[in-house]
Structure formats: C-alpha cells, structure tokens
C-alpha cells in the first residue's frame, strides 16, 4: 500500500507544481499534510484539490492509511491533520497529551449508511435488530422477514473500510458478522451486487443510493439528508479531522479544517456522498 500512498502523495504534490508556473495568486505559502481514514480521505482530497486550485501557494498531501495511523501520525508530528472516521480513543488522547499534542476535533460531515436491497424485493422496512440478525446469521431467508422464499445474500464492505467500521458499531453492536457474508472492495461494488442479485442486502453511503436499488427504512425512518443530519436516522455517524490545537486564524490550515462550514465545502461534501453538518440552503 505504501506504493499507492507515495503515488497519491506525488500526484497531489505535483499538481500545483505544474500549475504554479505563472505568478502566485493569494501569495499564501503553506504545506499541509493529511493522514488517516480511508473514509474521510475523499473529503480531504476534494478539499485539498479545491484549496490548491484557489491558493496557488498551498500544497496539501493526503495519505489514506487508516484512522489509527492518522492518530499516530498526528501524535508523532508527522501530519498536520488526522482524518478519522471515529473519535479519538482515550489512550490516543493520553499519548498525545504526553507528547505535548492537544488534539482538537473538527466534525466535517455526517456519514449516513443506507441499507439497500434489490428493487423487486417487497420488504420495505427493517429494524436495526433485524438487520443485525441477518448479518450475524440468525435469519437466512427473506420469508422470515415478510418477503419471498429467497435465500438472503449478505453483502458487506471489506473489514478495511470505515463504512464497515461504522456499520459494525451502529448496527451489529459488538456482534460478529457470520461466515457467509460476502465482502466487496467498494461501495460501488456493493450497489452493483445488490442491483443484480434478487436476494441481496447491502449497505452503502447515502451518495451511492440510486434508482437501481431500494433503500430500506430503518426503525421506521427513511434515510435522507434531513433524517441523517438531524440524528433521527439510526445508522449515521460524524466524520472528524483532528488538529494539534486550534489552528491559527487566517492560516491555510485553518481554512482547510473550516472549509466544511462554507457553502462550497458543503457542496463538495454532498457531491461525494456525505451529509453536510449544517444546512446552507
């Protein structure tokens, strides 16, 4: 994976180099290193692209090595922003404070997960307990849930993804996924599997739900922007960026970690399938 990270980093570094042959607009020069979650990574990359396009002197590299590694990098001082799909653990806070690093959390977006099934499946709503039963192997046929006599094909994101982590935490609550679960490597692949398989159930970020699949109501609440942002929809969690202390006002770092509060930042977040924290409309 190192190779991929280096390549990504190189790309992100090279882009502004190619672009700054003329004079530097804005005049602000800064370098920001982001490391951490593969879930928050796309937000960080989109923010970085936008910032580097706007302020030619700013260079931002984004590495995706996992939330845990992001926290460690922030504590070691090898990154400026730790992108994390979960809150910092107490032991991470302790290690940080021991090293003189004071982590400040910036919640940048909400990650709402829709539970999706094939459009021809008559089941419209499930409870979190029922979904957990499916994923832990307690229920294996749709007829036990009011559907047709079809075996349930359980599709999950790989254990490597933040999406999986969120689902495990919010729905399974410490229970183990059963052995028969099929793991796929991307949310697009989850949708692909569900839209072509009659008995399939899967989960994916709100941005991946389209008309080819059906999103179920969970505990009676349909997943949409409002129900996620208001906290009524149960399968949702905030995504974070952590900095060492609150960044100096007016610095590039400050505008990077507050970009999600601007209209443009919220548009970016929505475009890549997450739910903005505040409503700009």
């Amino acid at each position: 994976m190192n190779g991929r990270r280096i390549l990504l980093g190189a790309l992100v570094v090279l882009l502004p180099v190619c672009a700054t042959t003329g004079q530097e607009a804005g005049g602000r020069k800064a370098k920001i290193v982001v490391d951490g979650s593969t879930t928050v990574g796309p937000i960080a990359k989109a923010f970085a692209e936008f910032m580097m396009d706007r302020d030619q002197g700013v260079k931002i590299t984004v590495a995706e090595s996992g939330s845990g590694n992001g926290a460690k990098s922030l504590i070691n001082g090898s990154c400026d922003v730790a992108a994390m799909s979960r809150f910092m653990k107490p032991e991470e806070f302790k290690a940080a404070v021991d090293k003189g690093v004071l982590p400040v959390a910036h919640a940048v977006a909400m990650d709402g997960l829709a539970v999706i099934v094939h459009p021809a499946n008559p089941v419209k709503a499930l409870t979190t307990a029922q979904i957990a039963d499916i994923y832990t192997g307690g229920v294996s046929n749709w007829k036990d849930l009011g559907g047709p006599d079809v075996k349930i094909v359980i599709v999950s994101r790989d254990t490597n993804s933040g999406t999986y982590e969120a689902f495990e935490e919010l729905v399974l609550r410490k229970r183990k996924m059963c052995e028969g679960v099929e793991y796929v490597g991307s949310s697009g692949a989850v949708r692909q599997r569900v839209q072509t398989t009659l008995g399939a159930i899967g989960y994916a970020g709100l941005g991946f739900v389209d008309r080819t699949v059906k999103a179920l109501e969970v505990d009676g609440i349909a997943p949409d922007r409002d129900s996620v942002a208001s906290g009524r929809y149960p399968v949702a969690r905030p995504l974070f960026m952590f900095t060492n202390g609150y960044p100096k006002l007016g610095s590039a770092l400050h505008s990077f970690v507050t970009l999600h509060l601007t209209k443009k930042g919220q548009e970016i977040i929505e475009a890549i399938g997450f739910v903005p924290m505040t409503d700009y409309r």
């Binding site: 994976m1 939330s67 845990g68 590694n69 254990t159 793991y183």
Partner: peptide, 11 residues
Amino acid sequence: AGDMGEADHVT
C-alpha cells in the same frame, strides 16, 4: 490486498 490499508504498520 484488501486488508493492508487499515492494518497498523506504524506500531
């Protein structure tokens, strides 16, 4: 291939 990304290589 699938598990390398979140595997903790720092410690």
